[in-house]
Write a protein that binds this DNA or RNA. Sequence first.
DNA 1: AGGTCCGTTGCCAAG
DNA 2: CCTTGGCAACGGACC
Length: 543
Amino acid sequence: MEGRALMWFRKGLRLHDNPALEHACEGAKNVYAVFVLDPWFLAPDPCAPSPGSARVGINRIQFLLGCLKDLDLRLKSRGNQLLLLHGNPVEIIPGLLHKWSIKKLCFEYDTEPYSLQRDNFIKEHATETGVEVCSPVSHTIYNPEDIIAKNGGMVPLTYQSFCRVLGKPSNPLGDGPSHIPPPIDYEGVNVLSVPCLEDLGYKNLNEEFSPFPGGETEGLKRLEESLKDKNWVSEFEKPKGDPTAFMKPATTVLSPYLKFGCVSSRLFYSRLKVLYSQVKSYTKPPVSLEGQLLWREFFYTVGYGTPNFDRMVGSPICKQIPWKDDEDLLAAWRDGHTGYPWIDAAMVQLRKWGWMHHLARHAVACFLTRGDMFVHWEKGRDVFDRLLIDDDWSINNGNWLWLSASAFFAQYHRIYSPITFGQKYDPEGKFVKYFLPVLQDIPKQYIYAPWKAPDEVQKNANCIIGKDYPYPIVDHVVANKACRECMAAAYQLNKDATGKPTAEQLDLLKVKFGQSGNFNVIRNSKSSPSVKRQRQSKLTEYK
DNA sequence: AGGTCCGTTGCCAAG
DNA sequence: CCTTGGCAACGGACC
């Protein structure tokens, strides 16, 4: 019974550059490679606003299953296989340690609060029962704790101050162990093979699926393809990318592979450095591809070192702002029924593909929060958190804090136009028409503001605004002015207050701005009851 | 203290 | 097609 190791996979779904796996193989007679399918994440929720579980959309579940299938195949190529179990890891893992007489438990270190709590519990249990625990940092290039220590114990809150304290990056390991000794038996434990969506209880799936399949093999292929074009890599400047490019996205789309650890960020980083050394000139952080990887590190570091990072109340870095609590506005945004085609098309892409270009995320996040709707960033964060295949807790929260001008970024008067922003990249409206086929025959001069099309044009296009596609839910000019006034008042309150503004003070602002009616001009004047019903109907009906 | 510079990705009109 | 300047105007870093 000597020398049994349990390799617990969570993120880090790869064999290459996987220090936890290397440790598991060191001196082990048998390596049990385990992934726990947690119903808390994966159980179908028929009440959810789109297919998936309560917490995870169908695309990310599908992506995860792809990762697991590939991991299993790759483990098999090294003489092992992936063992799947259903349940809560906090209950499952300690049971396995006991039943399989495990001597060493290995898993990748995870900085997210939910994971830390879970892992600390399991770590304590393991140590108490004499199991050696090994959890190396390999999801990020740097260990957030080291960065904070190097910064004098303070969390760096600007990208530049963050970059100044960065030392040498850690180097990736190789392709992984060539042979991973398999278990002899499972001691009566019922281990499963990788399920499909139907096995998890998902039925009648007819929505479009993400074009990005999960897995280490796919991820490494994508990495190689991205690095092949040295000019493209060395000239990459994120803000110059085209958010409406969808047949061939303007970025690498390696984010979901980094999220699940199919591709090691350290491998990506070191490959980038090699490429940079082979070219005459190349772009630099923050806009370069290297810069994108460092943004990821930045948000992981701030997310790790900031209490209540994912909340407004109780966060030391988050501006206290009297966001509105309007479920109708939120639902219209979430379901792509705002009446602004650029916003709605991006939200449909999110729902159908689980992915949007970074700038499209900016546009819709700005629209929901400080730009037009003044809905709480935490609500938008939750929608992204559920639907994005690349959703990372730290990065998602960090970007919502940024876009809502709650932290990191304060120039709230810089607003993305829901009409002209998309138009400037895609004047023909190809992106909009692809994701909102109902607008297919609307002439391009009206495609970003179809309510302005004359009745005759709407009729010819078989798209009557208010019937086939909604009126804009807010008047951008009016709503945006109200948002900026409210932001100014809230900022003043945050500045004046010795600490944070009180809930009472924020409520006063809410009364002053929230009930003025400014947000609802068009909705109240032009929406007939039938339009309201139309909005509540399913997204797929807008075809 | 107070001024100035700058910050991954605003919009619009003018040239 | 591009760049440039006006617009309005926050706050951290640095002098």
